[in-house]
Computed example of a mutant assay.
Amino acid sequence: MYTESSDYNITLFQPCVDDPNKYIAQSRFGRTISMNVLCRILQNNLRFGLIVQLSCSEKLGVARFDFMDKTIILYKSGKIDIRKSSGEEDARNTMEHVETMVVDSFSDISFD
């Protein structure tokens, strides 16, 4: 079973293409993601209005959606890009929310 972690190694890049006053934050969850499960979870969240503008490809191993006024890109490898982040604390908070939403898609394979 996956245990939640809030100790993310976050790298900030500036400027964000979408907003030059914001950052692109990159990190990873440390686990691979089952894309078919992730896409189902995200489709459900889209139907309930928790996320918007979803694009999810099992074949390409990537999902992109808007959440908490940010654009989130999740990769099968567990990598995450957060666009329009105001800084490291904001990125960490966003990752915690995304992790809670998609935790059931994490596989048992970890990357250190």
Rank of each mutant, 00 (worst) to 15 (best):
V17K: 14
D18C: 07
D18V: 04
D19W: 00
D19Y: 00
P20V: 13
P20H: 11
N21C: 08
N21Q: 14
N21E: 14
K22A: 12
K22R: 14
K22L: 14
K22G: 02
A25Y: 05
A25C: 10
Q26V: 11
Q26K: 14
S27M: 06
S27E: 08
S27C: 05
R28A: 13
F29Q: 00
G30D: 07
G30K: 00
R31K: 09
R31C: 09
R31I: 00
T32Y: 10
T32S: 14
I33L: 10
S34G: 08
S34E: 14
S34Q: 14
S34I: 07
S34P: 02
M35R: 10
M35N: 07
M35E: 04
N36R: 14
N36G: 01
V37L: 10
L38D: 01
L38V: 06
C39F: 09
C39V: 05
C39Y: 10
R40I: 08
I41V: 15
I41F: 05
I41C: 04
I41N: 01
L42Y: 05
L42R: 07
Q43A: 14
Q43I: 02
N44I: 08
N45T: 07
N45Q: 15
L46Y: 09
R47Y: 13
R47G: 05
F48W: 10
F48D: 15
F48V: 13
G49T: 13
G49W: 12
I51G: 03
I51Q: 07
Q53N: 15
S55A: 12
S55C: 09
C56N: 02
C56V: 03
S57V: 05
S57T: 05
E58C: 11
L60T: 03
L60N: 12
G61Q: 07
G61R: 09
V62G: 03
A63D: 02
A63I: 08
A63F: 07
R64I: 15
R64Q: 13
R64P: 00
F65G: 00
F67D: 01
F67M: 11
M68G: 00
M68T: 06
K70C: 12
K70T: 07
K70R: 15
T71E: 11
I73H: 04
I73D: 00
L74R: 06
Y75V: 02
K76G: 02
K76M: 13
S77A: 10
S77I: 04
G78V: 08
G78L: 07
G78W: 06
K79H: 10
K79T: 12
D81T: 11
D81E: 12
R83G: 00
R83C: 09
R83S: 07
R83Q: 12
R83D: 08
S85W: 03
S86F: 03
S86Q: 11
G87L: 05
G87M: 06
G87R: 01
G87H: 05
E88H: 09
E88W: 00
E89V: 07
D90Y: 06
A91K: 02
A91L: 04
R92F: 03
T94Q: 06
T94A: 13
T94K: 00
